[in-house]
């Protein structure tokens, strides 16, 4: 007779399983509660000041009164510049690394460089942006300086996400295209990039989310002007930096919480967009 009852165990397999499940559940619940607590706290503190005029009015009295419209515009301009520059460079670099580069010292240096770039503290990038764009190239505190510095922040993200996405395009598909007499470039444009697009988009959007929240980089590069910019050479103040000033200079805590809520919502929207785009692409592929 085979003993399947397992009497000699102190705890049955079933019990151990239940305990493990419970512990995992608890960890998840704790994580979620922290998140809910933080977001909830900020929303409760900030929701009071939010209304249409808070979103659409220019700040007055250093931001103690009025709205945060100019800071929102500033953030969007900076992110736009960052994306316009980072996406082509990032995707291009990724295509080069995956499709063209052979395993040689140059490639390894590039890959290593990308890794390093991702690890550089944002304040250091800000300092570099100040020295290079603001001073050396004479761009001054401007959307362009800030945007280009932000580009350095999100470039590693774009490169890595694109690399991963390009790798997911199967060799079989590429061979199929090449076997039909397509050139390598045609194959990349018509097969590889469309196939990698969902992955690239997700990576870019997540990079954007990171860029929106970035303060240290733009502090020294985009300036802190509260005026509406007229060109990319004008200085702007980004939302997180505005928030920082509101708090650190004791201008208005309520306004700061209000700005925090807006920032959170922007990041939330961007993350939802990433999920949405991924779903859409998956559906189209099926």
């Amino acid at each position: 007779m085979i003993n399947i009852a397992g009497h000699h165990r102190i705890l049955s397999h079933d019990t151990i399983n239940k305990i493990a499940t419970l512990i995992l559940w608890a960890s998840a619940v704790i994580t979620i509660s922290f998140l809910v607590y933080i977001i909830g706290y900020i929303i409760i503190r900030g929701i009071g000041v939010i209304n249409i005029s808070f979103l659409l009015d220019s700040p007055r009295m250093s931001g103690a009164e009025g709205g945060i419209f100019n800071a929102i515009v500033g953030t969007l301009c900076l992110v736009a510049i960052a994306l316009i520059t980072a996406v082509p460079i990032g995707v291009g670099a990724a295509i080069f690394l995956i499709e063209y580069a052979t395993d040689n010292p140059v490639t390894r240096v590039i890959t290593f460089g990308v890794e390093c770039l991702a690890g550089i503290p944002s304040i250091v990038i800000g300092l570099f942006g100040y020295a290079f764009f603001v001073v050396y190239l004479g761009l001054g505190f401007s959307i362009l300086s800030g945007g280009l510095s932000l580009m350095f922040m999100i470039l590693p993200w774009t490169v890595r996400a694109s690399e991963e996405a390009i790798k997911t395009v199967s060799m079989e598909l590429k061979e199929g295209s090449l076997a039909l007499g397509a050139t390598k470039w045609q194959t990349i444009v018509q097969i590889v990039i469309p196939g990698a697009l969902p992955g690239i988009t997700t990576g870019v959007i997540l990079g954007t989310g990171k860029a929106i929240g970035e303060t240290a980089v733009i502090m020294y590069t985009a300036g802190s002007s509260l005026l509406l910019p007229h060109s990319i050479f004008d200085p702007v103040r980004a939302l997180p930096y505005h928030l920082y000033i509101l708090v650190s200079e004791g201008i208005s805590e309520d306004m700061a919480y209000g700005s925090a809520v807006v920032l959170l919502v922007m990041i939330l929207i961007i993350n939802l967009m990433a999920i949405g785009i991924q779903k859409m692409c998956n559906k189209r592929m099926k």
Partner: peptide
């Protein structure tokens, strides 16, 4: 390759 076509082991239609 235009003159000499190829069909692969795993069906590989483009998406």
């Amino acid at each position: 390759r235009k003159k000499i076509g190829m069909v692969f082991q795993k069906p590989n239609p483009f998406p």
